[in-house]
Design a protein around this nucleic acid. Structure first.
Lengths: 155, 155
DNA sequence: TGATATAGGACTAAACTAGTCCTATATCAG
DNA sequence: CTGATATAGGACTAGTTTAGTCCTATATCA
């Protein structure tokens, strides 16, 4: 179904909340209350986001989470990678070990190109757009540029 | 991981084989032998492809499968949809019933746009390109046009 | 010292995927 | 008419993945 996991979806929601109040530090409990997501789940996602460097945290009393950098510098691709590991449409694309029918199929390479194109476009979409903070709902132009400017593929 | 299932991958391989010999009718057993995929699995995938109208079949002795239409008229999006149902990055995007935090998250709409953009680009990639029959390995231009020309989103 | 908060990891239940197998039906050769 | 070949459809199982919870350790501050 070419889908992202719920955890990644939750991550986006939580990051959007943090992006909406960059000056504040929010606890997992506060984020849980605001988003109506279960507290343990919120904690789990935030811990993962911290591990991958998308949020910074403060321990102890008056602790909490905030974005590790401005929302404009956090991309959809980074969020996906943080929660689900490097993106790969098919297995051949993730491991470089050859698949059993590689010589006959020749399809893997094509899917890899598609994969690369999608990944590039996701790199151009920032948390600002995902959170709806950018004025326009989503700058579709970002998607266009990512692919129109993808010159590396032509080499 | 934003991945497609193995079944979809197999489907592409099988369709590529059929596309390489459009005049012939191949049996599931023949396709299994050529692709080195397990026979029951090949049958399963072909049946699904038949159900979704991507291949036509002949029953009985001297039966077999062939493409239901020219490879140029079969798109990556159609293959994905046939094997995995309508593409949806997140649940909100597939069902229109509101999610519990819709009012607060606002993220769903953004992901839907991304989803739509990807789907559009996949509609522009045909089996000809996936099968490597088009001269150039993959016409990356198709991906570009799909997004550059996606005017419906701006309305 | 105790309350609050994150860090890390173990654990379970549910859902999904991949793969196999069985039965029914259609076609054609002899 | 009969038997061999092939697809059609669906049931079934094993394995993996995902979602979600819980427990323990550690850091911070009143």
């Amino acid at each position: 179904m070419l889908r992202i996991s719920k955890m990644t979806d939750y991550a986006t929601v939580l990051l959007a909340r943090l992006a909406a109040a960059p000056e504040r530090q929010l606890t997992a409990a506060q984020l849980s209350a605001v988003t109506h997501l279960a507290a343990p789940t919120v904690s789990k996602v935030l811990k993962q986001l911290h591990r991958r460097g998308l949020v910074s945290s403060t321990l102890g009393l008056r602790g909490g989470y905030r974005l590790a950098r401005p929302a404009a510098q956090i991309t959809a691709a980074q969020i996906l990678d943080a929660l689900e590991g490097p993106m790969a449409l098919i297995e051949c694309a993730s491991h470089s070990h050859q698949c059993s029918i590689e010589s006959t199929c020749g399809v893997g390479r094509a899917w890899q190109r598609v994969n690369l194109a999608i990944h590039r476009s996701l790199q151009e979409i920032t948390l600002v757009e995902l959170a709806g903070l950018g004025g326009e709902p989503v700058r579709f132009a970002a998607l266009e540029r990512a692919l129109r400017g993808g010159r590396a593929e032509r080499a």
